[in-house]
């Protein structure tokens, strides 16, 4: 369990020319699969700035233990994607609950945007995050992490979340690298569209 017995060897170091760190935040309730998503696309094993919660179940963070959970010491965990020689993207998995609001300022300052990961069995867990993102004007997409066959159409989900049409809503399987990657691409596409739309009128 001990990390750091060889601090630099435990993960590949960045390229020497790495110059620009970028941030995307994956936010959602406990057990919705944030860590799973970060892990599936990260080039390093996700690191935590605090003690990681006990993991029940393999690969998916604690879906079965959600209700019995008492440990709340996790702050946020993060992964890394080297985009090219100069750009490095950091993914932060942040608990979406209100009690973690203190994290938000430092996480969301300068972030490109956010992915709200939702589980339709606990949709309410995402409300606070969506409200905060809307409040702060942070661009985001919503991704439904599918645990088994979906029971609702995306339109029903959009309706329940009261999401405006322009906010992308996608399905994903956070355990799959390609699926998680597609969510990130959807976010950046969304950002690109917003940015391009705004560009002519600075």
């Amino acid at each position: 369990m001990a990390y750091g017995n060889s601090d630099t060897a435990a993960r590949a170091p960045l390229r020497a020319g790495a110059r620009h760190g970028l941030k995307i935040v994956v936010v959602g309730g406990f057990g919705v699969g944030k860590t799973t998503m970060v892990r599936s696309v990260s080039e390093i094993r996700p690191l935590s700035t605090e003690e990681t919660m006990t993991t029940a179940g393999v690969g998916v963070d604690d879906t079965t233990a959600v209700r019995g959970k008492t440990t709340t010491t996790v702050a946020f965990d993060f992964g890394r994607i080297t985009l090219d020689d100069e750009f490095v993207l950091y993914l932060f998995g942040a608990p979406g609950q209100e009690r973690f609001w203190f994290l938000w300022d430092q996480l969301f300052a300068g972030t490109l945007g956010a992915v709200v990961l939702v589980d339709t069995r606990r949709l309410e867990d995402s409300w606070y995050a969506i409200d905060r993102l809307e409040h702060h004007g942070t661009p985001f997409v919503v991704a439904r992490n599918n645990f088994g066959a979906p029971r609702h159409t995306l339109d029903q989900l959009r309706d329940a979340l009261d999401l405006p049409r322009h906010v992308p809503l996608v399905d994903c399987d956070a355990r799959r690298r390609d699926s998680s990657k597609a969510v990130l691409v959807a976010l950046v596409d969304h950002l690109f569209a917003l940015s391009s739309a705004r560009e002519p009128t600075p």
Partner: peptide
């Protein structure tokens, strides 16, 4: 000389588990 607390999740399996419905 591992200082302090563990900073990584407990030994995650190196490969992602096969996506099977939970």
């Amino acid at each position: 000389g591992g200082r302090r607390r563990s900073a990584a999740p407990p030994a995650a399996p190196p490969a992602l588990p096969e996506p099977t419905p939970v």
